[in-house]
C-alpha cells in the first residue's frame, strides 16, 4: 500500500491544479471549504437565503480571482475575507454608514459610581417578564446578535465563536489588532446588555 497515494492533496496542490484549469481540483476545494464559508456567511447574514447567496458569490469570486491568491496567508483566511467583504460592502451600499460609531458608548460597560453597576436596559429590549426562559434562549441570542452592527458582528463571530486569534481576525477583516480588540470589547458588552434581562430572569428561576 502506498501511503502517498491515499494522502489528500494540500490546498496549495489543489489551487495549482485549479489554476491550470482542472475543474475537479476546484470542486475539491469547494467541497473542502463550503461548510466553513456557509457557516460564517449564515452567522453574518442570519438568514439561509442570504447565506446561500453569499456562499455562491464567494466561490464565484474565488474562481475568478484564484490567480491573485498569493499563498502568503492561508486559503481559509482568504475565504473568510471574501465572505466578510461581500457582506460588509453590500450592507454599506444599502445604507450609508452613520458618522457616529454606533457602539462607542459600550467602551464604558457600566457606570462606575457606587450602586450603578448595571447598565440600564436599552429601550425596546424585553423585560424578563415578557420572556420565556430557556426554550426562548435561541431566539433571544439570535435577536441580540442581529442588532449588533455588522462590523462588530464579524469580529465577535471570528474571535469568540470561530475561535480565531486577534491577529488572525485583524488579517481577515483587514483592520488593526487594536481595532479588533476595541470592536470585540464593545460587541461583547452590547450582547451582554442585550441578554442581561433574560439571563437575570433565568438565574432567578434557577435559585
Amino acid at each position: 500500500m502506498n501511503a502517498r497515494a491515499t494522502k489528500p492533496p494540500t490546498d496549495a496542490q489543489l489551487i495549482r491544479a485549479a489554476r491550470g484549469g482542472n475543474s475537479t481540483a476546484f470542486a475539491s476545494l469547494v467541497r473542502r471549504y463550503e461548510e466553513t464559508v456557509y457557516r460564517f456567511a449564515f452567522k453574518m447574514c442570519r438568514n439561509r437565503e442570504r447565506a446561500e447567496e453569499t456562499l455562491q458569490d464567494t466561490f464565484i469570486n474565488v474562481f475568478r480571482k484564484l490567480d491573485s491568491f498569493d499563498g502568503k496567508s492561508k486559503f481559509s483566511t482568504w475565504l473568510y475575507t471574501i465572505v466578510a467583504n461581500n457582506c460588509l460592502m453590500r450592507q454599506r451600499r444599502r445604507k450609508l454608514d452613520d458618522l457616529v460609531d454606533p457602539l462607542e458608548e459600550f467602551d464604558e460597560p457600566y457606570s462606575l459610581e457606587k450602586g450603578q453597576h448595571r447598565r440600564q436596559i436599552p429601550d425596546g429590549a424585553e423585560t424578563p417578564d415578557e420572556l420565556l426562559l430557556s426554550k426562548e434562549l435561541r431566539t433571544v441570542l439570535d435577536r441580540a446578535i442581529e442588532r449588533l452592527p455588522l462590523d462588530y458582528r464579524a469580529v465577535f463571530i471570528l474571535r469568540d465563536i470561530e475561535g480565531h486569534s486577534n491577529e488572525e481576525t485583524a488579517r481577515i477583516l483587514t483592520i488593526s489588532v487594536e481595532a479588533t480588540k476595541s470592536r470585540l470589547r464593545r460587541a461583547r458588552a452590547f450582547l451582554r446588555d442585550q441578554l442581561h434581562p433574560y439571563l437575570a430572569a433565568d438565574q432567578r428561576a434557577l435559585e
Partner: peptide, 21 residues
Amino acid sequence: TVKLYRAAPPPQIPAATHNRL
C-alpha cells in the same frame, strides 16, 4: 454571554444549497 453563543450548534449546509452551488 460568550459561552452561550459558542454553545449554539453551527448551521449545517443543506444538501440543496450544496447542489445549487
